[in-house]
Design a protein around this nucleic acid. Structure first.
Lengths: 67, 67
DNA sequence: ATAAAATGTAAAGCGTGCTATACTTCAAAT
DNA sequence: ATTTGAAGTATAGCACGCTTTACATTTTAT
């Protein structure tokens, strides 16, 4: 599963630290999400979507391989 | 976090088994989700939303307590 | 009333989301 | 040139999503 977190972060000029604090996780979690090491939990996905004022499906990209 | 899975399932006359098969998890997983024992993963939430033709946020209800 | 289908409970085990800590690399600013 | 901030890597450890198996209860249909 891919996501647009890094892109949105840069568009909004937000650092990993700021985003991490805003959604209440560590910076490592944001790094790992951006670099595709694992998927967000539903709750974290929701917090991130809310932070950017978007829907979950607008940020997280579900592909065939995710089946 | 609450969800409308059971409600949607009954409205659409779908059994737990049918839904479980459709989204490729076990029946126990559906039961546990409906009874609030844990939250779905982002991927499972997406599959369930897709199954019912809805957005994730239309099915999973995020509350203040989920902070 | 009885059989079958649907829903539920319990518990052990595995993989992964997330934390915590520590160290590294690169870019920007002074 | 050196400091500072932002981004990255690595690793050990805990919590939870999900599976598996087995059994119990409730609902539906005949």
């Amino acid at each position: 599963m891919n996501n647009r977190i890094q892109q949105l972060r840069k568009e909004n000029k937000v650092t990993q630290n700021e985003l991490a604090d805003a959604v209440d996780v560590t910076r490592q979690t944001i790094i790992s999400l951006e670099n595709g090491r694992y998927n967000a939990s539903l709750l974290l996905a929701h917090k991130i979507a809310e932070y950017f004022g978007l829907k979950i499906e607008d940020i997280f990209i579900f592909e065939e391989n995710d089946l």
